[in-house]
Design a protein around this nucleic acid. Sequence first.
RNA 1: CGCAGGGUAGAGCAGUUGGUAGCUCGUCGGGCUCAUAACCCGGAGGUCAGGGGUUCAAGUCCCCUCCCUGCAACCA
Length: 552
Amino acid sequence: MAEKSTYYITTPIYYPSANLHVGHTYCTVMADAMARFKRLRGYDVMFLTGTDEHGQKIQQIAEEVGDTPKEYVDRVVADIKELWSVMEISYDDFIRTTEDRHKRRVQEIFRKIYEAGDIYRGVYEGWYCTPCESFWTDTQLRNAKCPDCGREVVRAKEDAYFFKLSAYADRLLALYEEHPEFLEPETRRNEMTRFIKQGLEDLCISRSSFDWGIEVPIEEGQVIYVWLDALSNYITALGWPTVDGTPGEHDKYDKYWPADVHLVGKEIVRFHSIIWPAMLMSLGYPLPKKVLGHGWLLLDGGKLSKSKLAEAGQDKARRNIVDPVELIERYGVDALKYFLLREYTFGQDGQFTTETMLQRVNSDLANDLGNLLSRTTGMNDKYFGGVIERPVALFADGPITSAETAVDVAVDARDGELIALALGAAAKVERHMDSFEFNRALETIWELISRSNKYIDETEPWTLAKTDGDRERLGQVLYNLAESLRIVSVLIQPYLHWSSEKIREQLGLDSGAVVWGDAQVFGLEAAYRTAKGENLFPRIDIEKEFASIAEG
RNA sequence: CGCAGGGUAGAGCAGUUGGUAGCUCGUCGGGCUCAUAACCCGGAGGUCAGGGGUUCAAGUCCCCUCCCUGCAACCA
């Protein structure tokens, strides 16, 4: 037997200069959904996230609050890990660039690229703000002043090491040409192609003006500058390149590299699709299969930023919450996850407002899904004491596994329609997930939920309940609804883990035993013992909610 | 200046290779009473930013104009 297929997915490693906002959450939630989906499909998944902890900015912030950089990032990283834990982010490894396993390998990478002749010593020249001790490029300056403090900057130089990025322009263009799937969406690839054709400069990869970083292995007083350090995490976490020769050191590298997808925000597509492959080319390592750039969540038409966050706190009447911790405390993990995955089109920017999220949660989660479960279990409890057997009349030949059979076999056209839709959903979800269309995957599942709600209205179980002779049909209807909900519980499992479990609980199913193939079988359960529980998603009174948010 | 995207119903968005303009929310009307005042059905609402062109046929392809946004080497 062949080994299980592997799937390696990464998020960027976040910069812990401050706590994360809902934009970081967006990226991580997508990666988590994909990782869970692939696991459910039987892949051996490696899902990596982490933090990029070096650099001048963190050194400065730590000094301001009187901490060492390490103390400072330890605290922020603890919060980040706590957030991922609350959100049930199923990462397999969390790499911190301050960890020894990373630092030693980054130095090894530096050495190898140096030995390959792609690193040389030169002079970095830029605008320097003396009070901030920061270098800035021409375009970073604001009105020719320091963008941080607004004070004068001076032209300054320092010795530094450079990576011969310019030497890789042709090979990068060839990569995009021969493997367009390497960089998606297409618009990002167009941007990068243009960018390369404008001419690549060599990349400054070390600094001597601050010391919070990994030391350059061949010279004291220089630390490795961001990209070489940060991008390397995708292989250092897998134990590559080898530095200590311990048995099994690079097993994960052998197994999972090259990565199937680096999920990144559109603003760092350039680093992942130009610098990173160039580094790997220099090292002679295989390239990742895909870099995928997602869009941004926008707040009031602009990107999420600290100043925006401050403003957001000012507008009491319709304050937008962008702190994921607060969103989760108020509305729950699945509400946030569902909204992020359902509302936005991958690759494009989208407006984020708390009001839109609450509307989405009310209509899709409370009214459609929660209510469907409530009415189904409620009627089953009321009419059958919660116990319902698989109706022999409908499943005389056993469970149904194809939509065509469903339509042929069904005694009632509405049954056939419902069953056919339920059986076809999994394949559609798979197709949409293959192209990272989370919104469409969820849309597909919600078509089944809507059809189920409609099925209740069409079959009118409350009318059937009034006549003894209709009792058999009533049982069929409720069984079909339970089966439909069971399939929903499988389909939503990668996205709404918590809800999936709650639904299965109320249906009397084992929560731990979700198998994807079960979504392609109708009539699987021989009997249901349902028990109506608490409402999955209580309706939110949006006006009252805003009043409460304003009081804060 | 350069490069890359957008402009589609009141709001937010979909619209593969050109073939009757869709979805969600909201709104209006109706139905139902199992359910979380939820659910189901139906209606109204768009000269697809503007102009020109190609075509039997253009939201879709080509040209021009206007408006918005992103990138330009440390922002998810």
